[in-house]
Design a protein around this nucleic acid. Sequence first.
DNA 1: GTCTATAGCCCGATAGAC
DNA 2: GTCTATCGGGCTATAGAC
Lengths: 196, 196
Amino acid sequence: MKQRKIDPQDKMERVIEVARGLFVEKGFHNVSIPDIVKVSGVSTGAIYHHFSNKETLARYIHDRTLSEFNDMLVSRLAGTSTTYQKLRAFAHLVLDIAENNPVLMQYMLFIRHDEFMTDHKPICYSEPFVWVQETVAEGIANGDLRKGDRLISAAAFTGVLTRNIEIRLTGVLQKTLQEKSEEVITAAWNAIKADS
Amino acid sequence: MKQRKIDPQDKMERVIEVARGLFVEKGFHNVSIPDIVKVSGVSTGAIYHHFSNKETLARYIHDRTLSEFNDMLVSRLAGTSTTYQKLRAFAHLVLDIAENNPVLMQYMLFIRHDEFMTDHKPICYSEPFVWVQETVAEGIANGDLRKGDRLISAAAFTGVLTRNIEIRLTGVLQKTLQEKSEEVITAAWNAIKADS
DNA sequence: GTCTATAGCCCGATAGAC
DNA sequence: GTCTATCGGGCTATAGAC
């Protein structure tokens, strides 16, 4: 069997992973290419061979992160049918990601993409966000959710989740989000459910 | 009456206002001192005469913004007594600020202070945030609010508000927050109120 | 494809006249 | 107190050997 060098793609995977972590931790402009070189062990030349500049690298990371999240959502939605089941699946997903892959969640919550992407499509228009809006709209239409503006109810539901994730990621909340998931999801659901 | 030069402090007020706007718009590291010079019309030397470096300027802006917000909260709370009245006053305050002084609100929501302040006391520990937690704790104790973790309920309440402000500030929500205030506040309150 | 070395640029901060 | 001019440093991106 022919001896293989390390797959170049593996090296770039490492660069991407390291860069995302550093961007989340320190912010785009506080991370220099030399920083990424130091942490990843991959040289400047190799990085620039694959990504024509720092913005291209950041944009690639951005797209990858968003689609990673969207793929997880799609797989979690299998077998759900009611408004409650769907939104509950969404909630469990984001709480799980926050605990198991905090860098991914921190990226989604805290990254200011307009700092490095000039033509910024707001994260609010990404697929999962739009999906929540549509699911909420259905719930309002069929009477599961309180009547009102779908944008506001969707923002209310996601706001409860993301703010709780924030206090967990910043270390203010000591218990895991799994331990507290019922409480968090109850608050999010009560914010939008139809009056009983 | 003696002829007075323009009060130096007015010039620095202008620098502060301009810098805060630019920080919010472009992020700390995308704003250079030359940028502030250009927009404010105040020279590099004058700025450095008052603020020993860029971080000191940013820190001053940070403290001023937080205390500005806290002062407004204190004055709005006059005459409130029940949990509902207090939290409702808080909600109206943040919705009003978001419409009337969006830069202030954007600063509070989006600024990553750890980008420029090395010893970062998290914004979660600022007075208004702590006040919400305490008010929620009282509400839970006297039965106005659902039993549970005070951190989670406080995060739920503020999360509904801030996420709705976000979609307004990013232009996703077309109507003003004043027009929609009842709907937003109902969602926030329902997230945490005691079961009826 | 990957490396080291370095060019070229822009920024924060200072110096010194007024 | 305020200005203009400029220095030194660190960054992105490139050049060229292997």
